[in-house]
């Protein structure tokens, strides 16, 4: 299988006042198309920071990040926006739906930025909503939906543009177990269709849904493999 992304000795520092604080240290990671990974680690270890780099929301301080053959580090704001729009679907812990838009409009948003016509946007958004089982809630506003439903709308939004990579930062963090399982079911389906998924989570049971688990500790990617996760649990 071909590589979708590659992090090559990546460092990320944040400047706090005058001192540079290293958050990610010497990360090397290769992800192949269609992989389903989980990333675990304690709070403050740099999971979200890593996710932001992979999601092209930020660029590394040092090291190379190559996404689908493109070197990301040197791109400007607008180019990064285009890459995000084209390659990446985001699912956040607290959904981030726009409260003044209906579920359908929320889902259609990335297509707007991709320059898709209004008619097609509506069709594709409706399709995506159907895929997460919410076709009847298309006209609802986020405050009329439950947490689990909101997250499914967010997933529909993440997949509506057929991105190659789905990034989820604690997608079940705000949900009860039942809703969480529903989300995992959807992820499993997407993965089955060949979508690459990288998911951050605190819960081992959720991480267990992935094919592979990485651990991050104090900014360093330390262990890989499903077995390692199992060891830690024990």
């Amino acid at each position: 299988m071909s590589m979708i992304l590659q992090l090559d000795h990546v460092y990320k520092n944040y400047s706090r006042g005058k001192t540079e604080v290293p958050v990610l240290k010497d990360i090397c990671l290769e992800v192949e198309k269609g992989e389903y990974l989980a990333i675990m680690g304690p709070s403050g270890s740099g999971k979200t920071t890593l996710m932001n780099l992979i999601g092209c929301l930020d660029v590394p301080t040092e090291g190379k990040y190559i996404l689908d053959g493109k070197q990301i580090g040197s791109l400007d704001d607008n180019a990064l926006a285009d890459i995000r729009n084209q390659y990446i679907g985001f699912v956040f812990q607290n959904f981030y739906l726009l409260p003044k838009m209906t579920a359908l409009d929320n889902v259609a948003l990335p297509l707007l930025y991709a320059g898709v016509s209004q008619k097609e946007r509506r069709e594709r958004a409706a399709e995506a909503l159907k895929a997460v089982g919410l076709e009847e809630r298309a006209g609802f506003y986020p405050n009329q939906l439950s947490g689990g439903q909101c997250q499914r709308v967010a997933i529909a939004r993440a997949m509506v543009g057929n991105p190659q990579l789905l990034l989820a930062d604690e997608p079940t963090g705000a949900l009860d177990t039942a809703s969480g399982n529903q989300i995992m079911e959807i992820f499993r389906e997407l993965s089955g269709k060949g979508m690459t998924i990288i998911m951050i989570t605190h819960e081992p049971s959720i991480a267990a849904c992935a094919n592979k688990t990485y651990h991050i500790l104090d900014g360093q990617l330390i262990t890989t493999g499903k077995e390692a996760a199992a060891d830690e649990e024990g």
């Binding site: 999601g55 607008n78 995000r84 985001f90 981030y96 930025y113 991709a114």
Partner: peptide, 16 residues
């Protein structure tokens, strides 16, 4: 702010 951040994350260019 969070609306703007989200829109940018989803691929909205600065101009928009």
């Amino acid at each position: 702010t969070s609306e703007i951040g989200l829109k940018k994350a989803l691929g909205a260019r600065k101009h928009r």
